[in-house]
Simulated scan of single mutants.
Amino acid sequence: MNQKEILEKVDHTLLTQTATWAEIKQICDDAVHYGTASVCIPAAYVKRAKEYVGEKMAVCTVIGFPNGYTTTAAKVFEAKDAIQNGADEIDMVINLGYVKDGLYNLQLEEIKQVKAACGNHILKVIIETCLLTEEEKIKMCEVVTASGADYIKTSTGFSTAGATFEDVALFKEHVGPNVKIKAAGGIKTMEDAEKFISLGASRLGTSRIIKLIKNEEAHGY
């Protein structure tokens, strides 16, 4: 798999609390230059970023982020607001308390409501694998499949760990054919990226791949 094929699956991400417009603008420029799938940025920057990149790049944002315990109504509002501001894709965090309490019906209903708010825009569901048991991960594969969401996503990158090869393989085994997989959090090398894709990931959430490429270019590797 060549570099271009990997970059086409990357959501070039900057979600730090201190992100400035200059930094957001830079990752937008890099995403357009290197041909990534999208930029994934804080909701507060969506309108300005979409006006900046226009149709040259998809803009993705996060809702209920990073803890997932806002109300369903708040998540629905966030999704509608982001789309109104120009977001092309939405990554939502589930309510992990629902999962721990076994309230999968409530979690399913929440995802359905957010998906309805997204309309024909892509919705990715972050289940924060590092905080779940294998049984809970499998159950969430079933919930996301039933919800009508487009992707199941491993991690926020803000918890105790990020994506693992094992979790992506588990997703591949248990999600329905209508659900794609996004691996995010801690993807540091092109080799890691390629392995995640080979295991079934269609998207990669990472801030490091383009930094790595730019560093190699700067040193003439």
Rank of each mutant, 00 (worst) to 15 (best):
T145R: 02
V76L: 09
L170S: 02
A73P: 08
Y151I: 05
V46S: 06
A149D: 00
K180A: 13
Y34M: 11
Y34F: 15
S202C: 09
T61R: 06
A183K: 02
I27T: 03
E194F: 07
N85L: 08
K112T: 02
H121R: 15
K56I: 11
L204H: 03
K4N: 13
K25W: 08
D192E: 15
V59P: 02
T145Q: 03
K47M: 12
K182F: 08
H174R: 02
T133S: 13
T70Y: 12
T164P: 07
C60E: 09
L14I: 15
K124Q: 01
G86I: 03
A49I: 01
N215R: 14
G35T: 04
V76M: 09
A37I: 01
F158I: 09
I122H: 07
E110N: 09
L204D: 02
D150M: 05
V175Y: 03
P42E: 02
I187P: 06
H219Y: 15
I138M: 07
V76D: 04
C130Q: 11
I213K: 09
K139G: 05
T160Y: 13
H219Q: 14
T206E: 07
I209A: 08
L108M: 03
Y69P: 06
K25F: 05
E166H: 11
E78R: 05
E128K: 05
L96F: 13
H121E: 07
L199G: 06
V114S: 08
E166T: 11
S155P: 06
K195P: 07
I126A: 03
A43K: 08
